[in-house]
Design a protein around this nucleic acid. Structure first.
Length: 541
RNA sequence: CGGGGUGUGGCGCAGUCCGGUAGCGCACCUGCUUUGGGAGCAGGGUGUCGGAGGUUCGAAUCCUCUCACCCCGACCA
């Protein structure tokens, strides 16, 4: 929506006289030169009907929602907290799945599928696990509906006679049902390791939801492995964290901080949780993936034992690790700008779009034919290339539309280009525009995509570096988070109560204890006790 | 569960104070002219005014109840 702003008006006055603009509270008139303009605006001061994206600096949260709507990634559904992922959004998720899945397979994992519904009793078996998830579970209590009439209207109710003997929980995560199964599969050390991944939907009944970042239902992968030794379990946990780091940085162009979660933030049932943390453009942190060392907790809860080579019987060692559709929220917030979505080429659904330009039917036939030929030649090299042949839309409209949707590269092809055997190549993120000869395109386009990928990573990295500081005093700390926020590296005593007190006072949390950190001596920024080293603080999504 | 706000065509809104049988922009459809950064003209279709009840000759508008969604908290990450 386009806003009225001072550069476009000489006088703007809230309607008051009444006669000219009868009965409208949100109408304004604008005197400019010798003309009187009349505008109707909505609550936000936007002139009706001109769809544009809220500026980041004006309202970051609204900008985020506008980008998702403008790029047609997802929209709200009739189900509270659940979104509909539209084809443009799902194409990104499919690329995420394909890339991660290939990597998992490379490392020896296989896919399997476990039920959506979990017997209620399973969740209760691991004490910390049940405590962590009990408050956000959806429960299936009946298996049949019954038609009935209320106030003369036909409706349906759960049939009281179909009440389940044991109720089911819609999975918030699958550890319990998987470990119940692993018990049957594992007897000897020869059965280990088990390296299974599942692509699935899960449900957590959150009180407040935001598109992609926290939805009631979301999509993810959850890896669940079983090992013969503690070391092997820990190695697997760290290996998968490294996969996530690689994926975030190399594929999504999103720099992350790898580290260990504090005890307070640990996964319910884990011995140790590791995370990758990214910084969004509003300086808030977002946990982009987690990997858990579950120790023997689930093996003990589900009685999963094996006999080792010496004949000794022992509980197995476990890990679990996941990345969800939440990462798409991070992807959107990391790179996008006030013109809409910006995507790194390696994850974009459509890598490039060709916009043919013509004046008449004859030219249209010629440029469209040439565009098709170019696209056919480029697809094997770069992936999906779309030719936008829609008539009744002028090129300028198409440029704007593809920019909103985040297609990394646009190729403009008009009669003059055709005559010169070239296209105009334009990058989405910086609008850098250059002519490229047809003959050079097969090398120039992949090179341009590499440049874009690298630019996006470097820009995000620079933004994070500039918003990361080392702080020494509580005053500096509170000042930072009452203002612009960001990442801060501060000394911390290691005490959970102290951590909690910091959160209650400032809403700032320890994101993780970074692997690479300054371990020089110091005192806790909050309580002044001896420090365990500097840890990463930030306000978080 | 508190505090605030909004429900009117696909989307964004006006109309509600002061009751008179629903309107604007965008989008959509048709035609013509256009097409190198958001085209123009002409014609056209689109509504149980969130729901229920009440007052009234007459309700989007007044009254009562109710439902849904959004924002700020609480919760969670």
């Amino acid at each position: 929506m386009r806003r009225l702003d001072s550069t476009h008006m000489v006088v703007i006055t809230k309607q008051s006289a009444g006669s000219l603009l009868s009965g409208t509270r949100r109408s304004y008139y604008l005197q400019h030169s010798n003309f009187l303009y009349i505008f109707r605006t909505d609550r936000e001061g936007r002139i009706s009907g001109m769809a544009e994206i809220t500026k980041r600096e004006k309202d970051y949260s609204r900008w985020y929602q506008d980008v998702i709507a403008a790029a047609e990634l997802a929209e709200n559904s009739p189900v509270r907290g659940c979104m509909v992922i539209r084809p443009n959004g799902y194409a990104i998720w499919e690329n995420i799945q394909r890339t991660l899945d290939d990597k998992f397979k490379e490392l020896g994992h296989v896919n399997a599928y476990f039920p959506l519904l979990i017997p209620k009793s399973f969740l209760a078996k691991e004490a910390e696990h049940v405590e962590g998830f009990a408050k956000e579970c959806a429960i299936v209590t009946h298996h049949r509906l019954k038609q009935t009439t209320v106030d003369g209207k036909v409706t349906v109710i759960p049939d009281p006679e179909s009440k389940l003997e044991e109720e089911y929980i819609i999975r918030p995560t699958s550890e319990t049902i998987i470990w119940d199964q692993y018990r049957k599969w594992i007897q000897s050390y020869r059965d280990l390791p088990i390296l299974i991944n599942q692509w699935a939907n899960v449900m957590r009944w959150e009180m407040r939801t935001r598109m992609f970042l926290r939805t009631t239902e979301f999509l993810w992968q959850e890896g669940h492995t079983a090992h013969a030794t503690e070391k092997e379990g820990r190695d697997e946990t760290l290996q998968m964290l490294e996969v996530y780091r690689w994926f975030a940085e190399e594929v999504l162009a999103m720099p992350v901080v790898c580290g260990t979660k504090t005890a307070n933030e640990r996964f319910a049932g884990a011995v140790e949780t590791f995370s990758i943390e990214a910084m969004m453009q509003d300086n808030k942190a977002l946990q982009a993936a987690t990997s858990h060392d579950l120790g023997q907790n689930f093996a003990k809860a589900f009685d999963v034992k094996f006999q080792d080579a010496t004949g000794k019987i022992e509980h197995v060692w476990a890990t679990s690790w996941g990345m969800s559709t939440r990462i798409m929220g991070a992807l959107i917030m990391t790179h996008s700008d006030d013109n809409g979505l910006v995507l790194p080429p390696r994850i974009a659904g459509t890598k490039a779009v060709i916009v043919p330009i013509w004046k008449n039917d004859e030219e249209m036939a010629q440029v469209c034919d040439a565009a098709d030929q170019l696209a056919t030649g480029l697809r094997p090299l770069v992936g999906a290339v779309h030719v936008d042949k829609r008539d009744k839309m002028r090129p300028g409209w198409k440029y704007a539309e593809w920019e909103r949707k985040g297609v990394p590269v646009r190729l403009e092809l008009g009669p003059r280009d055709l005559a010169g055997k070239q296209v105009m190549m334009v990058a989405r993120h910086d609008r850098a525009k250059q002519p490229v000869a047809f003959a050079d395109l097969a090398t120039a386009l992949p090179a341009e995509m590499e440049r874009i990928q690298n630019d996006l990573y470097q820009t995000a990295l620079k933004r994070r570096q500039e918003a990361t500081v080392k702080l020494e005093t509580w005053e500096e700390f509170t000042n930072l988070y009452q203002g612009e926020g960001g990442f801060s590296l501060c000394h911390w005593c290691g005490d959970g109560d102290c951590e909690q007190a910091i959160q209650e006072k400032t809403k700032v949390t320890i994101r993780n204890v970074p692997f690479e950190r300054d371990e020089t001596e110091g005192v806790c920024i909050h309580c002044g006790n001896r420090s365990i080293g500097r840890v990463l603080f930030a306000q978080a999504y």
